[in-house]
Design a protein around this nucleic acid. Structure first.
Length: 423
RNA sequence: GGAGGGGUGCAGGAGUGGUUGAACUGGCACGCCUGGAAAGUGUGUAUAGGAGAAAUCCUAUCAAGGGUUCGAAUCCCUUCCCCUCCGCCA
């Protein structure tokens, strides 16, 4: 959520930036300022009246003690009159504040000045590429065929137990998943991230804090009886660990990592884009989250990009890093880098990580703050990234490393997996 | 799920209708003391919004929301959370 004061002081800048994100309802900016003005006027009226209520009430006990009942009664009447002024003004204030908040929530985060203009994924900028695309054997097949051939993943079985998009990992397939999770977590904790195992369901406040609510509830599974949402990413519980907290400056940066399954409804997409592991309703992901000093967030963003890049390099996968254009960015992000790996048999780039700086957009909602050297409280900046999302990594590992009768695993996984190949 | 007891500031913990934003203790910060430290001692130590150049002042906040009252941390209602006992259970 953007700060009203900032919007007031930087009205034109805000409008200009929103346009980069292809935000259409620019008029909301002026509405917000008007609503803020109006609610301030009423608020002052109420506070003035309340001040008099308090002052008059405070005199009553003394008067009663001195036996001046009549005077006390006069004050009593006066306060009752003031109260009705307050009670009449209150609904109006509430209406204005609700409207103001609703409008504020409609504004996405402002894209950083580093964000390129553009509307579609074609406008994203390729920052750099790494690794080399493999030359596959003549009989190479996509990962869903390999999964069947080596009995690693059963998609049909998942259909039976739950529904489409809930695969069952079997035997070496399951162990490959486990190896990757453990490798990723070890890689992250070695870089100073603290490992967490957060809840997989969150309440409304948490879903609101990271920006899933309002408006995006349709993307999450919802446990109706208890009002809990299944997490779409561990970003949600991890970042909310610090909701409503004020930390000391020397506690920053706060670095967290977690492995969790992620649940996404993603209604309405079928066909070859979602075949196999390409898009699932439940998938595993290891996430990294940082809460940092606002002056450092862009340096930290670059650091996190390098961190994820190293991880991909260690897996020997061909990858590329994209800087997202304004039109392709998420609602809450100020700058986002996407990582894609090349799935050689499908001949497609698959997104496996998205690393973003949210600046103070999330932390303003969650009120995550720190005390600076002048003892002033300021919002921290939040960042997160996947390191990494498992299914598409698995898809690429299988496809890119296939030979006639086995799949070669990258060296970093040998110990975790207990074998150098899948056969 | 049933029965009972609770939720107060950074922490412990007073406070059951009237200057209580909140005693006291501890923690922390700064100062004094010291060669240095400990001990001792003094001061300070919430958040949000508003007014003001500033000092400072005003409003709200004692789990959350609503109510009673001239006045609520204190009384009533609802929700959430914690503890004890019982039930169920990996």
């Amino acid at each position: 959520m953007l700060d009203v004061k900032f919007i007031r002081d930087n009205k034109d800048f805000v409008k200009e930036r929103l346009a980069i994100k292809n935000f259409k309802e620019i008029a909301i900016v002026d509405e917000i300022i008007k609503l803020d003005d109006d609610s301030k006027i009423i608020k002052r009226k109420i506070e003035d009246a309340q001040m008099q209520v308090n002052a008059n009430s405070a005199q009553i006990p003394a008067l009663i003690k001195e036996g001046k009942k009549d005077e006390a009664d006069v004050l009593r009447e006066k306060v009752i009159a003031l109260k009705s002024v307050i009670n009449n003004a209150k609904p109006e204030l509430e209406t204005l504040e609700k409207l103001l908040r609703d409008q504020l929530l409609k504004l996405p985060n402002l894209p950083s000045i580093k964000v390129p203009a553009g509307k579609t994924p074609e406008d994203n900028i390729i920052v750099r590429e790494g690794g080399t695309k493999p030359t596959l054997p003549a009989n190479a097949v996509p990962h869903w065929d390999l999964a069947k051939k080596y009995n690693l993943i059963d998609f049909e079985l998942g259909n039976k137990i739950t529904g489409s998009g809930f695969p069952v990992y079997i035997n070496k397939g399951a162990k490959l998943q486990r190896s990757l999770i453990q490798y990723f977590l070890d890689f992250n904790t070695a870089a100073g991230f603290i490992e967490y195992q957060p809840p997989l369901m969150v309440n409304e406040n948490s879903a609101f804090g990271t920006g899933q609510l309002p408006d995006k509830e349709g993307q999450m599974y919802f446990a109706n009886a208890d009002n809990f949402y299944l997490i779409p990413t561990s970003e949600v519980p991890l970042t909310n660990i610090y909701r409503d907290e004020i930390v000391k400056e020397n506690e920053l940066p706060i670095k967290m990592t977690a492995y969790t399954p992620c649940f996404r409804r993603e209604a309405g997409s079928y066909g070859k884009d979602v075949r196999g592991l390409n898009r699932l309703h439940q998938f595993d992901k290891v996430e990294i989250v940082q809460l940092v000093h606002p002056e450092k967030s862009y340096d930290v963003l670059e650091e996190m990009v390098l961190h994820v890049e190293k991880l991909l390099q260690s897996l020997m996968l061909p990858y590329r890093i994209l800087k997202l254009c304004g039109g392709d960015m998420g609602f809450t992000s100020a700058l986002t880098y996407d990582f894609e790996v090349y799935s050689a048999a499908q001949q497609k780039w698959l997104e496996v990580s998205s690393v973003s700086n949210f600046e103070a957009y999330q932390t303003n909602r969650m009120k995550i703050r720190f005390k600076d050297i002048n003892n002033k409280t300021q919002l921290v900046h939040s960042l997160n990234g996947s390191s990494l999302a498992l299914p598409r990594i698995v898809a690429c590992l299988l496809e890119n490393n296939q030979t006639e009768n086995e799949i070669l695993l990258p060296e970093v996984l040998h110990n975790y997996f207990g074998n150098k190949t899948i056969s």
